[in-house]
Write a protein that binds this DNA or RNA. Structure first.
Lengths: 358, 358
DNA sequence: CGTCAGGATGATATCGATAACAATTTCAGG
DNA sequence: CCTGAAATTGTTATCGATATCATCCTGACG
């Protein structure tokens, strides 16, 4: 081999004056790189004195740890991947917050990806995430492309599916039955005397939770002997507020005697309520409307909206907690299903007295 | 080669049968690892035939590229970090979408972090992101802790600050003046004859965009000779819908003759409108209300809301585009400021005729 | 005074890909 | 057929940290 006399370095990076490495910090302090590495971890054995000197040097030099190198050698990437359908949905953001909170002080970071309610996009994201070797992955829903599923299984990391109860879970599940939740809402309202039920949802099975809610609605209405529900499908999920408004107009044109309309989410329900109000109809006097999700808007809007409250934060928190369990025990104690609670929240928009609080 | 009978390893990874590397794929196909590596990139020169065979093997074996190894050696992490205050805010999610779109087909992935409107949280996130060596970073706002700023400068990667016009930019800026935008709204409404202005915002400077809007309001009201504005500060940013409702009650108790109330965001404005409606006041007949941001809710709610529309998507798209420019030219062509458009959207909630469309 | 446990630190191999350059093959054109 | 440029493929060193094991040191205790 060559000695390091002559060929110092011929290729010089452009304007890259600050390729500071651990070795340089080490030299600066007068210790080995290994000791610097140890100083960055709280479990490692380094004397307090040395650590202090190292950290001062780190500060002085402005050194920032390079995890991409570290994770290669330690085989721990230090992050958990989480895929949610939408960034702009307070239900999912509550879930994300739950995950972040549960991961606090674990040394694990959460990296979020957005699937836009698309299984293809989800597959792409799963691959992109797996390439960075996450230590675990949390998914929304239980429907994935075949290839996505294969990759997930092969990856050999804990997988948690959330927000649903998949028939054939990959690993762990933290969720609830969207179908039963919607069913509960139908039964509750039927118990209040409502008989003619309408439903507003999306057109495709793309939003699997939406489909489940719809089928829960349909099944229950029939079980109660209230005939087939009046369904309006409108647009590609997620349905917007505006589409909710358009949908209720169609629905009432077609079935003017509808008494109560359930919506796949609070957002479309809000659009429906506003549109009715705009057209001079009183909610709930002329038409009762309920949503799903208990978004902030539901308790603020006028009239306040009946909906299903789901423990979104709990989903995230539990999902991350189950993931951590699996990571710590080294092996899942069996692929469990963690059920998450939900409850009907009755508010003005379905009040039988028809008189919203003044 | 070795059988399972011989427990060669003392430390046994749990169920870790699949530590598939590029070298194994290469062996399987009968080429070198380098060729496999090339096959994964579209620019590299590999014969179509070889690439096909390699990709079939990748598929058959279920190999997933390991970027943590690749980025160490190539010194390219393949991602851009973006920090936003909140994931549950459609303005910022539009911005994020703009960034994602602009990065499409660039081989760069977007990693989002959310700061919760806290500079300390932002600092932590910046450090966490920098440890993974992003190729660029996009921030929301121009206020950062001193240490965060130091780290950013030292990192030697392009930095884009968005949504504001910082006095002392780190590098590039894509934003607008929140102060002037609010000022424009005040002038527009004053032009319609409004004289007694109220304002609802948060209590602290934590939300810098909020503070700028407030000062724009205050300054302009005084410039127009309309006396000091009637300000109600309520809660820690971001203000919720509910706080908007509470705030307007306080404001009207204190200054019952207020004609129009501007809010730091559409969300608080919405809460205010609903609360007024609930109390039997007509908007805008009894009180006019305007927001900021043009969220979906503003065009749906009843009455529809006057607000400022900002090109949120454009902010994201431009920010990413400027970042890519800098990456490609190798050096910024000067740290530019890219101005983003905004406009006043007049709707029913400030209609001087006072008669919301039936 | 010797021994040994255990903390602190260092030396070296290594994680899995890619950069850089070398070697080989292909093929057009003289 | 030969030559050289371009296309394809291989070899080796390396990216920057950490796992692992070796070494050194301190002090308690017989």
């Amino acid at each position: 081999m060559k000695n390091e006399d002559e060929p110092k370095d011929k290729r010089l990076k452009p304007a890259d004056a600050q390729k500071l490495t651990m070795a340089e910090v080490a030299k600066y302090v007068g210790v080995s790189a290994m000791t610097v590495s140890r100083a960055f971890r709280q479990d490692a054995s380094v004397s307090e004195e040395t650590r202090k000197r190292i950290m001062e040097a780190v500060d002085a030099l402005g050194y920032v740890l390079d995890l991409s190198a570290g994770s290669l050698s330690s085989r721990r990437s230090g992050f958990i991947a989480a895929l949610v359908p939408s960034i702009n949905n307070s239900n999912f953001s509550d879930t994300a917050r739950g995950m972040t909170d549960a991961l606090e002080n674990t040394g694990l970071q959460l990296l979020l990806g957005y699937t836009d309610y698309s299984a293809e996009k989800e597959e792409e994201l799963i691959e992109a995430m797996l390439r960075r070797r996450p230590e675990g992955i949390i998914l929304t829903g239980g429907s994935h492309t075949a290839r996505a599923r294969r990759m997930l299984v092969k990856a050999g990391i804990p997988v948690v599916e959330t927000w649903e109860l998949p028939e054939d879970p990959i690993n762990q599940v933290v969720g609830f039955s969207n179908s039963e939740a919607m069913s509960l809402l139908v039964r509750t309202l039927a118990g209040q005397g409502y008989r003619k039920f309408g439903y507003i949802g999306g057109t495709t099975a793309r939003d699997t939770r939406g489909s489940q809610r719809r089928s829960g609605f349909q099944k229950t209405v029939e079980e109660l002997g209230l005939g087939p529900g009046r369904m309006i499908s409108f647009g590609v999920p997620p349905i917007t507020m505006e589409q909710g408004g358009q949908a209720i107009v169609s629905l009432l044109e077609r079935w003017p005697d509808t008494e109560v309309v359930l919506c796949v989410s609070d957002l479309s329900a809000f659009g429906a309520i506003m549109e009715c109000t705009r057209r001079g109809m009183k909610v709930p006097r002329d038409i009762a409307i309920a949503g799903f999700g208990d978004y902030e808007i539901s308790s603020i809007c006028h009239p306040r909206m009946t909906t299903i409250n789901v423990d979104c934060y709990g989903i995230g928190r539990q999902a991350a907690a189950r993931l951590l369990d699996t990571l710590h025990t080294g092996e899942a104690t069996g692929d469990e299903i963690t059920l998450i609670g939900y409850k009907v929240v009755l508010r003005e928009s379905t009040d039988r007295n028809g008189a919203p609080t003044a």
